[in-house]
Amino acid sequence: MKEKIKIQNLTASYNGKSILRNINLSVIQNEILAVIGPANSGKTSLLRCINRMCDFIPEMDVEGDILLDGVSTFAKRDSTVIRRRIGMVSPLPVGLPMSIRDNVTFAPKVAGCKDPVILEEIMEDCLKKSALWDEVKDRLDMIATKLSGGQQQRLTIARALSHFPEVLCLDEFSIAIDPVTTMRIEEILKELKKEMTIILVTNLNFQARRLSDRTAMIFEGDLLEVGATKDVFSGNTQQQKTKDYIEGLFG
């Protein structure tokens, strides 16, 4: 039971408005941790702090620390390397306006890899892992923005895998895609769990229940509780709020 990520006293505000308060949370290696909670409770902001995207949002103030493999990430001045260790899949699929091949090899290229053989290898590997290879292998030079939404979302996952992340964060990845694709991606995640740690932010309680090992509940910037998924979803919650949310009394 190795702690992959340890969030310590994380407090964040956006334009002076408090969005996360004193979060303490650990993510264990090779687990899927689901983060649930109603809209606007700070789930996305939590992910942005983890991969230090918050550096690029000038309105956001962050305090506390996040340890990756026991080492503080906030202490490092340059956050690029941290984002390479953490893959991020955004809610809406984004195909960069370049070919499918370039989309997947973008991350290794900006990291300095120039060997075309290796790049090709990485691309094929990532596209296969994200279950997109069979659909696009004959048209790798097509511009990625012409793919369908579901395909673009899998491309986003392929891109997130292309820099060999140790942690994969998914932010409500199924919001803009059809149920069939969602199920396929969920299968992929179960596979990926063997090689990396996954943080799954979701607004679908069933998805959290199906996929995750542990579930964390965030409500209005506070971490209400974190526990084994089967406990949380069988009614053994520490907080009444969590139970109400899961039962759909609010949300």
């Binding site: 340059d78 690029t80 390397v81 390479r84 260790r85 991350a107 290794p108 990291a111 300095g112 890899c113 060997d115 053989v117 290796i118 290898e121 990485i122 590997d125 820099h163 060999f164 140790e166």
Partner: peptide, 18 residues
């Protein structure tokens, strides 16, 4: 060989910015 190179690359990508 490619596996080995990829492992090296993964280290390189994650820790080094030339």
């Amino acid at each position: 060989v490619i596996e080995e190179e990829k492992r090296q690359l993964s280290d390189y990508i994650k820790h080094y910015r030339p």
